[in-house]
Design a protein around this nucleic acid. Sequence first.
DNA 1: ATAATTGCAAATGCTTTGCTTGTGA
DNA 2: TCACAAGCAAAGCATTTGCAATTAT
Lengths: 136, 136
Amino acid sequence: MSNVIENKCIEKGVRLTDQRKLIAKVMSESQDHPDVDELHKRVNKVDTKISIATVYRTVKLFEESGIVTKHDFKGTKARYEEIPQEHHDHLIDINTGEITEFVNEDIEKLQKKVAEKLGYKLVDHRLELYGTKIKK
Amino acid sequence: MSNVIENKCIEKGVRLTDQRKLIAKVMSESQDHPDVDELHKRVNKVDTKISIATVYRTVKLFEESGIVTKHDFKGTKARYEEIPQEHHDHLIDINTGEITEFVNEDIEKLQKKVAEKLGYKLVDHRLELYGTKIKK
DNA sequence: ATAATTGCAAATGCTTTGCTTGTGA
DNA sequence: TCACAAGCAAAGCATTTGCAATTAT
């Protein structure tokens, strides 16, 4: 199991400590979008001594270094995810909290167009869909 | 100057107190998207005794009654706005904090389509564009 | 009359920070 | 070596809440 985040730290010159390596590993291996508490729990399974303050500091450092992104979905705590090679947006199941990633080039283009029409250069955006499963 | 929110309270059977009437009035007259602190300041110009707790409670009540909406734009406190007759999304100037409202039917349709393709009924969404002014 | 609302201050939940000790390059 | 990081507990910030007094219907 590769530790993509650790590699990115080396690339970006982020100093690696045992704690950071472990947090990086746990995040790299996460297929979901864990919050700080959940990350703390996961790293604590390996090293009980890592404090939640360190998790907060590390996650922030990774974010500022452009290695992970933070999501503030409605009604939930801040969640983190490794920055993906390809941009995507999220659909959140309002019943289960389940998150599905998606990409839609048409929407992306329209966003840029809308911003430009309003006299802005699009720098960032946030698109979240909230829905309920259609049973069939 | 009409107090649209007060009327909606009556419609929805929300009990009206002096504090709520004033908060309703201030929100109805706001053309921007004030946060709780700002609302508190504005109502305090008329009635010094209204506490911030009441503003918090009222704003939450209005939100739960479907009268106002809350926005959690990146990097800012919660902001409130009267629910508009026509839905719109927001473009936030990352330099000034200025907010521009916009509507784009094509994006709306695509969102619905994306959700359906993923097996979901679209219940809500959040679309925010963050940009910088193009000087020309 | 009486159930709901207010103001106040204390409590909360998430996140940050000061300080001392420990450690990676 | 020595600037930077970790752990701990205390502080911060936005928001919520318990309680006694007040008020709308």
